[in-house]
Design a protein around this nucleic acid. Sequence first.
DNA 1: GCTTCGCATGGAA
DNA 2: GTTCCATGCGAAG
Length: 775
Amino acid sequence: MSAPVSNSASAAAPPATKICFNSQCKEIVADHQPPRKKGWRLRSGEIAELCGRCSSAFEQGTFCETFHSGVTGWRNCETCRKRLHCGCIVSAQTYIYLDAGGVECIACATKSLPKTPNQMSSPSMLMQHVSERRDSSAKPWKSVTTPFSGQWRQAPHMWNMTNMQSDLQQRLSYEFDRPCSIERLTPGRRHYISAHEKNFEPERVISGSVNNISQDRYAHGNTGENDPNSTRKLVSMDPSTSSGFKIETKPNPSSNLHPLPINLQTSPVAKEDSSLVVGLPVPFSSSHGAKGPITLPANQPLAQVTSPLSSQLCPPHITEAGLQVQMRNGRTKGDAFPRTQLLPRYWPTITDQDLQQISGSSQTIITPLFEKMLTASDVARIGRLVLPKKCAEVYFPTISQPEGLPLKVQDTSGRNWTFQFRFWPNNNSRMYVLEGVTPCIQAMQLQAGDTVTFSRIDPEGKLVMGFRKASSNSNEQDPKTHNSGNDLPSPPEDQSTWPIQKDVSISRSLPVPSKRKAKTLGSKNKRLRIENEESMDLKLTWEEAQKLLHPPPNSSPSIVVIEGHEFEEYEEAPILGKMPYLTSNQAGSACIAAQESGGSKRGKAKAQKDNVEVSDRLAALASLAIGENLPASQPTTKHPRHKPGCSCIVCIQPPSGKGPKHKPECNCNVCLTVRRRFKTLREKRQSEKELEISEKQPPSTIPPSDVLPEARTNDPRSTGASPSDEIPSLKGTTNVDTEISASPPLKITQIDLNIQPEREEEPSTLQQTVTLVPY
DNA sequence: GCTTCGCATGGAA
DNA sequence: GTTCCATGCGAAG
């Protein structure tokens, strides 16, 4: 940079006089002299003040020739070979960067440009326009001037700045001039709106019809400025807009980028402009007999949008109803595939990290095609990934035979996979699938609920399959399963601003199990169904589940103390009390039978027999209660009346001193069960006490603390602490023995575990109690 | 009995 | 009412 910077128009000179801004001139310009000539715009937005001589040179375009001839940065115009002082703020307006490299003087750039009203109102805009022209001329795509072209009007205090120009031109080259798709993005290039753009006032930046657009957007309150926290921007499609896409903002506290409130709703002008070419990947035409793996032909499916905004924003499959979509191969896809036919859930979301992940640092262009959340079927061993029909038909090769074609896909780590892209006839339609995805799914450790994103890398035309773990979208992610290498950034917590306005609760969470009517299920499917669906019911009936547990009859408990809390440990399995809806269930439970049979031998024998034939629901309940992944789920022999393999909550407890310790924060099912039982019984006991006392005394005179001081003291609700913080956890029986002797004297509240809600009026005749200290 | 394939089914949009 | 698509399911290997 050779621009004079040493002279400040107001710093060194006395108020009455100023020095010519040209550092090589230093001519004093007095205030009384004729008005100082204006030079170039400074970074501060001010105008350099020059003496008459320097100003004349500047106006004649010979300033740099005169004063900067000995400094570096000189290049020649690619067209007329005129010398251009590149990188100098003085000459920043006199040339443009060519996309193919090199520079071109503004005169040459202007010659070939049709100038229309509202256009070319600034050199910057000209640069942009010319850049488009050059870009389009260098590429085979069809280039058509659009109403959006040249709509970027100069923000005078910004656009003259060299750094701005540089940044702008980079953005123009890499973002606006992408051969259109949703966003023609170059990895490593920031496709967010850069920070300085926040200073743009849309009304000033956008003129003409586009200005109306911005106003319209403003009228709808749909500006990024409305959300000061929205500092991250992604291009996305918005079904709420007529154009179907807009710049969305994402809160990104770590980002210092700022939103540019632009929404490209289709202007009437745009609709009328039949020449607007909206990029749209064209279905691959493949010979039916082609069997070799194919990749996406580079550029072939693309048409170019010369409008920078359109180019930047239009998604690959978006076509306005009124827009003529012309493909380079002459096919028109607009009528065949209006964007409204593609469900929003398949609209791709892509971020910088996505791009980096997909293509690394190479100068490749990423075209996000679509994404799909994986279903259970997709990740099943069958290895068939169901493709959305529209996506398959638009972005994948056209296939006419069910056998389809092998499709070569690269994953984000660079591995190549070959899937069979095919379809099945289905209801006079087609159902497209990718077969053979199991290895890839497994390699990526994908699960149902994760999202795969299909993109295309140009110019190779390679199809890339990225993925986004569902866990990355949730705070409940499991760091162990979180593939940091391939995971994509988590969306903001406020998902309402996640660029794609799909049903966040669905798209960002595991798929909701289908409510499809249960059919005949295999054993495996039954198990899955229980885990997925029945568990929901069971979760809702945990309270009832707690009440179903009863100590076995005629058994004496041994008292153990776990973390200061006494437990009665029975040598026999607990009795599963019946629930009302189970009373008619013949399978019932052995314990129920035993209980109701009064403990007779016959009843016990029947109970043991029935114990094996428990109902699915009860078995599920028991399984859920014990948890299949309990570390201490190995059956023990301490409960001889239970058969080997019994997984009741008693049997799963290891023998005293042999089980692993349960940490206080342990969330295994045993601990959870105990906690819930504590809670249930405590609440019940407390309510009973309160009720009992209230019957004796006026309620107002009896504070709860007098009723059950232990409970009040330890009740997490009274302290505001979470139950998990307060509820004691099982430490297993390993340390039980030692704690028994070490435990201090406790106030024992004895609660009858045999209480049956539906038979509460009946006193328990079994004398089974559980000793616990309310927490 | 298991896996794969191809189609059918039916809930959801 | 239509279409999509997740998934069930029987046949075949």
